[in-house]
């Protein structure tokens, strides 16, 4: 079991935050210590931006170079927004003129939503492998072929299937990624599967679904850094995943 990280200075009590934001009963208790109040995010003492620092900016696809040679794992329960975050990273990569591959073991990719997320479909290779081992083999082929980002979707794959993978599988993939300066984004859930091989591990939790005027407007979620080789863990970010894209202020 993973030990609970120490709270960064200036972070308020998780219980107080949950009480203030009305998330009681909706937030996973095991992740309490990784949640910070929305207004406090981005404070200099919490997220110093250094070139080799990985963090939640990666999720917005803003730091392409920083993620080269890394394995990023996005884990979470269903409807927690992990696929939306991976789509956003793919959109960022294609906007930079890079090639993206999407390994889709559960055959769950929807081209309409992918395009709506801003992904250039001509720069994305969709691969539907027949099994888990074929997925990893395909990932190595793609990394060696020069794809800048390889998304590996293993959401909903049974634990008995995943248990058949050797422990070294993810370490081997990470080694290939480092050699090729590529990024792999592993979508998993509900549990993390890459373990210590992941350079950056992010756990997403849905706080609520936004229904307004008889329409599903989006999802509110918390994304927490639960594993980070190049920086501290515990950073958390409240995010809204909406039906319509909302511009991000880069300043």
């Amino acid at each position: 079991m993973q030990s609970r990280p120490a709270l960064p200075p200036g972070t308020r009590s998780p219980r107080a935050i949950i009480r203030e934001t009305g998330l009681e009963g909706r937030v996973h208790l095991g992740l309490e210590s990784r949640i910070v109040a929305p207004g406090e995010l981005g404070a200099p003492e919490q997220s110093p931006r250094t070139p080799d620092r990985l963090g939640l900016d990666t999720l917005l696809g803003l730091e392409g170079k920083a993620t080269a040679g890394t394995l990023i794992e996005l884990a979470g329960e269903r409807s927690s927004g992990r696929t939306a975050l991976a789509y956003r990273m793919a959109a960022g990569a294609t906007a930079r003129g890079e090639l993206v591959a999407w390994l889709d073991l559960p055959d769950a990719l929807d081209p309409r939503f992918l395009r709506r997320s801003g992904v250039d479909l001509n720069a994305l290779l969709w691969v539907r492998p027949p099994g888990l081992r074929a997925t990893l083999r395909a990932a190595e082929i793609l990394v060696r072929a020069g794809f800048a980002m390889v998304a590996i979707d293993l959401c909903g794959i049974g634990t008995s299937t995943l248990a058949k993978l050797p422990n070294s599988a993810w370490t081997r993939l990470l080694h290939s990624l480092r050699g090729a300066r590529a990024t792999a984004v592993l979508l998993s859930g509900p549990d993390r599967i890459a373990g210590t091989a992941a350079t950056l591990g992010i756990y997403t939790e849905r706080s609520q679904a936004i229904f307004e005027r008889d329409l599903l407007e989006g999802l509110e979620l918390y994304a927490s850094v639960v594993r980070n080789r190049a920086g501290p863990i515990g950073e958390a970010h409240p995010l809204r995943v909406l039906q319509r894209p909302v511009p991000v202020d880069l300043s």
Binding site: A86, R88, L250
Partner: peptide, 23 residues
């Protein structure tokens, strides 16, 4: 991978909702 054209201004936006298809 044919000729690529980048958008004139890199319009970054927040994540939009994704649907995982059931097939």
């Amino acid at each position: 991978a044919g000729p690529r054209v980048l958008p004139k201004s890199a319009a970054f936006s927040g994540p939009t909702m994704a649907l995982r298809a059931v097939r």
